[in-house]
Design a protein around this nucleic acid. Structure first.
Length: 371
DNA sequence: TCTGGGGTCCTAGGACCC
DNA sequence: TCTGGGGTCCTAGGACCC
């Protein structure tokens, strides 16, 4: 989807079209309704907190701000930009509509995130451009929003070319196009080459995908390890055999929060304890909503120096309820050095297993016993 | 008044078992 | 008498993605 969060917001507040606008931070009461019925929006300069921008419109980007930028920093660059709080309910609603729309064209879909998916269109009778055009029409019809489609022989190339013609574009790529259209691109454009790998590649004089493709497989293995080196070699040659994964069970579920101000383990014990309990309650609700139980419970801490530590505990019996999660997470907390001020606390459940739905809850069992 | 929140996968070392 | 070789599970950290 093109500039998804911003587009969702603009469909709600069309008067913001053409203005610099960013989405950042938790729910607020903005926008407010004026007596005359028009809406009054918060401005970036009104923001106080520790968040980062989730989205910035093209007009806002022209002022030098971009998603991921600390909101306070963005406020200095674009104080007059409209600031909207994130509205995940709205995005999820549009997300469902968009995915259902694509499903009317192809049933075989892999969910990637809220605004992306892979669709296998191998078996469709229409040619690539027609398939893409039909998808875009279906999505526009269902959501009023535009998207960009990349069609290629595999997921790696489809992902790579899906944003070659953004927004509202269609790109078709075949292996014959590799040298002319893919090799000139920065290596960083490959999904799986992040900032660290790009930096290391650059230190060896490799900045484009073509330069990567020119290296021997053995050389890449020697410098980047067996698995990653081989993958780099394959990826730079446009090779990717991964099938679409149409369904998967969650591996882990977590909740975390960054505090408004750093907290001290002893001085802010009460506040910290309340947040800790709330996170465990949210996590418990998430687990039961997904119908899973957790055998491993962990915590995550980020200190004032941005160092992050995690502690895990695997239990003899899986747990679900907030109290048990909190007990297990509490033992993890005891194993961490809490002498530094803390900026983030998180709780995580993993080694997930299907909850036993056949077993009635204890209260009901008692009823039956005495029934 | 730098640096969110929710995920996945990989690596590496140690414990433990056969 | 010097300490093999797998395999699995667990923990911690890090890279990467949306």
């Amino acid at each position: 989807m093109d500039a998804f969060f911003a587009s969702c917001e603009l469909s709600q507040y069309p008067e913001l079209r053409g203005q610099p606008m960013v989405v950042a931070g938790r729910r607020t009461d903005s926008p407010r309704l004026r007596p005359d019925g028009t809406r009054e929006f918060a401005r970036l300069r009104d923001y106080a907190g520790r968040g980062v921008l989730t989205t910035a419109t093209y007009e806002a980007r022209a002022l030098g701000v971009h998603s991921g930028m600390p909101t306070m920093k963005a406020a200095r660059l674009a104080p007059d930009a409209v600031l909207l709080p994130v509205n995940f309910e709205l995005y999820r609603r549009h997300s469902r509509l968009f995915k259902d729309a694509v499903r009317t064209i192809s049933r075989v879909i892999q969910d990637i995130g809220i605004d992306e998916l892979y669709a296998d269109v191998t078996e469709l009778a229409d040619d690539s451009r027609t398939v893409a055009a039909r998808m875009k029409a279906a999505v526009l019809e269902a959501t009023g929003l535009t998207c960009s489609v990349g069609i290629a022989p595999n997921k790696l190339l489809a992902k790579l070319c899906s944003d070659m013609d953004k927004p509202d574009g269609i790109t078709v790529l075949t292996l014959d196009d590799l040298a002319t259209r893919v090799w000139p691109l920065p290596a960083r454009r490959i999904n799986g080459i992040g900032p660290k790998a790009a930096e290391k590649l650059a230190s060896h004089g490799i900045t484009t995908i073509g330069e990567l493709a020119a290296r021997e497989r053995d050389w890449l293995v020697e410098h980047f390890g067996r698995a990653y080196g081989q993958w780099l070699h394959d990826a730079s040659h446009g090779l990717d055999e991964r099938p679409l994964v149409t369904h998967r069970e969650p591996v882990s579920i977590s909740r975390e929060t960054t505090f408004e101000r750093n907290l001290h383990a002893s001085r802010d014990r009460i506040e910290l304890g309340e947040v800790f309990t709330r996170l465990c309650e949210q996590l418990a609700a998430d687990l039961s909503r997904k119908g899973v139980v957790a055998r491993t419970v962990g915590i995550k801490l980020r200190f004032d120096d941005f160092r992050t530590v995690t502690r895990d505990a695997t239990l003899p019996e899986a747990v679900v309820d907030a109290a048990a999660l909190r007990r297990a997470a509490g033992t993890c907390l005891k194993r961490a050095d809490l002498s530094r001020p803390i900026r983030l606390l998180g709780v995580r459940a993993s080694s997930l297993e299907a909850g036993d739905e056949s077993r009635p809850p204890p209260a009901r069992q008692i009823d039956l016993d005495f029934g």
